[in-house]
C-alpha cells in the first residue's frame, strides 16, 4: 500500500513533465500514450526505480518508447512534424504565420544537430534541466555535455543566421513575413 501511495504521489508530481517531454518529440497525438506507458513501466518496475530522483529515469524510458514508435512508423519528419499540431496563434503573437515560419526554422535547425546533441539542448532548454541532470539522461559526463552544448549553440546560431529560409524544408508552405 505504501508503494501505491508513493507511486501515485510521483505520478502527480511528474506526469506533466513526462507528457510535455513526449509532446515536444512526438507531438500531441502520441504524447498521452507515451506518458501513460512510461508510468505503467515505472509501476511495473517500481522496486528498481530511483525514487529520490525518478525524472531522469522516466525521461529515458519515455525516450526509448518514442524511439520504438518513430522507428515502427518510419517517421522522419523529426521535430518539424510538431508544427502539424500547431493550430492557432499563441498569446502575444502579432502575426501567427511569421511565428510559425520562425518556429519551423528553429525546429529544422534543431533537426540538423546530431540526435545526442539535440536531446541535450532540448533537455536543458525545454525540460529546464541543469547540465548534470541532462548529461545523466543522455549518458555522458558533465564536461562532455558542456562541450557538446557549446558546439550545438554555435552550430544553431550559424544555421539560424546564415539561412533565413526554413532549413532543410522542401515544402514552400510556410511563407515568411516581411518583418
Amino acid at each position: 500500500m505504501h508503494d501505491e501511495a508513493d507511486f501515485t504521489r510521483m505520478f502527480h508530481e511528474h506526469y506533466e513533465s513526462v507528457l510535455r517531454y513526449a509532446w515536444r518529440r512526438v507531438g500531441p497525438d502520441d504524447a498521452p500514450d507515451i506518458a501513460a506507458e512510461t508510468f505503467r513501466i515505472a509501476w511495473e518496475k517500481y522496486g528498481r526505480l530511483p525514487r529520490d530522483e525518478p525524472l531522469p529515469w522516466l525521461y529515458v524510458t519515455a525516450r526509448n518508447l518514442m524511439s520504438n514508435l518513430l522507428r515502427k512508423e518510419e517517421r522522419r519528419d523529426g521535430l518539424t512534424g510538431l508544427l502539424l499540431g500547431d493550430t492557432g496563434p499563441r498569446a502575444g503573437e502579432e502575426d501567427h504565420s511569421v511565428a510559425v515560419a520562425t518556429r519551423h526554422t528553429v525546429l529544422a535547425a534543431l533537426n540538423r544537430l546530431s540526435d545526442g546533441d539535440r536531446e541535450l539542448v532540448l533537455l536543458v532548454c525545454w525540460e529546464g534541466l541543469d547540465l548534470r541532470q541532462a548529461a545523466k539522461i543522455v549518458g555522458c559526463s558533465r564536461p562532455a555535455a558542456t562541450m557538446r552544448l557549446h558546439r550545438a549553440r554555435k552550430r544553431l546560431q550559424r544555421l539560424l543566421t546564415e539561412d533565413s529560409r526554413p532549413v532543410a524544408d522542401p515544402r514552400p508552405s510556410y511563407r515568411r513575413g516581411t518583418a
Partner: peptide, 12 residues
C-alpha cells in the same frame, strides 16, 4: 544563450 534562442519555440 540556448534558452534565450529556443524557449519561445517550446511546442509544449
Amino acid at each position: 544563450q540556448l534558452r534565450e534562442m529556443l524557449q519561445a519555440h517550446d511546442p509544449a
